[in-house]
Write a protein that binds this DNA or RNA. Structure first.
Lengths: 198, 198
DNA sequence: TTATTTATTGATTGTTCAATCAAATTTTAA
DNA sequence: TTAAAATTTGATTGAACAATCAATAAATAA
């Protein structure tokens, strides 16, 4: 019984989250309403309130879902690499590739991050670093360890370079490259980062 | 008469735009309403409709105002420099400094860019490059000319490096550096960029 | 079978919103 | 001074919203 219950609950919650992602991508956070998510999922409006305590709760769970999806993809690609240089290159290529392969998810993530707020009205995009994203933690670890072990010989600040890389990756989502495609940009970014750290 | 009229109109419009910027920063785009902007400006709600054709028109004009303010600051600092290297360094430092000195404006800009949409429902942050921001044009010109004239000897793509720099700058607004302050980050970023292009 | 719990619907409630507009006030022109 | 024009107010309208809830339907347990 318990299994069946939790199975239904899990499936319904995921169905609603996936509908929310679609709607967020199509019309943006501002225009997204529970009624429109319900219509997209072909369920009644009340059902969303049955599985989530409110709009904020749904958005929080959608954010967690999106971050987890991205993390699963990136970690699966980075973990097998054995030296820090390869991990770093793989991290960059994986993040850029994920954004191309999962554009709907990436856009929905942006919509939430730039609109949802904590209960104290602090926007997610201004949250302090103690709530740091796990992707950022991994990148900082790679840069720090690569420097510690002298695999990266360059004089650089891991904190700063982490920021530069994350920004350079996020930026490609925002301005659709017509001059430069994803593969070319990936090569250029890796080349540039290696110049900085080696 | 015409001067006086246009003077009042100009002052009122700017008063409303400045109130909009404050409200956007305080409560975010989602919670910003014309009534709250009117209250902030100590005017009646109807007056906003008298000077702007609607909420969308006000947000568009606020965006234009914010971009212009930033451009005035950056161009004033970059223009006097005579060699491309100095222009590039000044561009980076000016953008970072502007963000620190004008945090309210920078946050309001983010709130609009990530929420406002064109009449065809395309979000501003996904707009095609033919509507390219003038800051980006300047940065690309510096990188391209510096390479053409052999002042920058490195093997790099101006398009890609422009993206990397813009992303690295935007990123600092989003994750408040507690480890690295603005001045240190500025030095690190300049150092890294010079390694890439020289 | 019957009783109980779980899941789902859709109408309703109270609130907030952008936009409108008639009326009042202030400014300008004759 | 007076008429006309420009400016400003605040109440009103109708639409959209999140949340609630009584009513039903389905699943499970006794």
């Amino acid at each position: 019984m318990e299994d069946k219950q939790s199975f239904i609950t899990k499936a319904r919650r995921e169905q609603i989250i996936k509908a929310a992602i679609e709607v967020l991508k199509e019309i943006g956070y501002v225009n997204t309403s529970l009624a429109k998510i319900a219509r997209k999922a072909n369920i009644s409006t009340g059902l969303i309130s049955y599985y989530f305590s409110g709009k904020e709760d749904l958005m929080n769970n959608t954010l967690i879902y999106l971050l987890e999806q991205e993390w699963l993809y990136i970690n699966k690609r980075v973990a097998p690499k054995s030296i820090w240089t390869d991990k770093l290159i793989e991290f960059i290529e994986a993040r850029l590739t994920y954004q191309v392969l999962n554009r709907t998810n990436s856009i929905a993530l942006i919509e939430i991050v730039f609109n949802a707020r904590t209960s104290e009205q602090v926007p997610y995009y201004l949250l302090e670093d103690d709530e740091e994203d796990i992707k950022t933690s991994l990148l900082k670890e790679i840069l720090f360890e690569g420097q510690e072990t002298n695999e990266f010989g360059g004089d650089f600040s891991p904190e700063a370079v982490s920021n530069i890389i994350q920004g350079a990756i996020s930026e490609t989502m925002l301005s659709p490259q017509n001059k430069l495609n994803h593969k070319e940009y990936s090569l250029e970014l890796v080349k540039g980062v290696l110049k900085i750290i080696k």
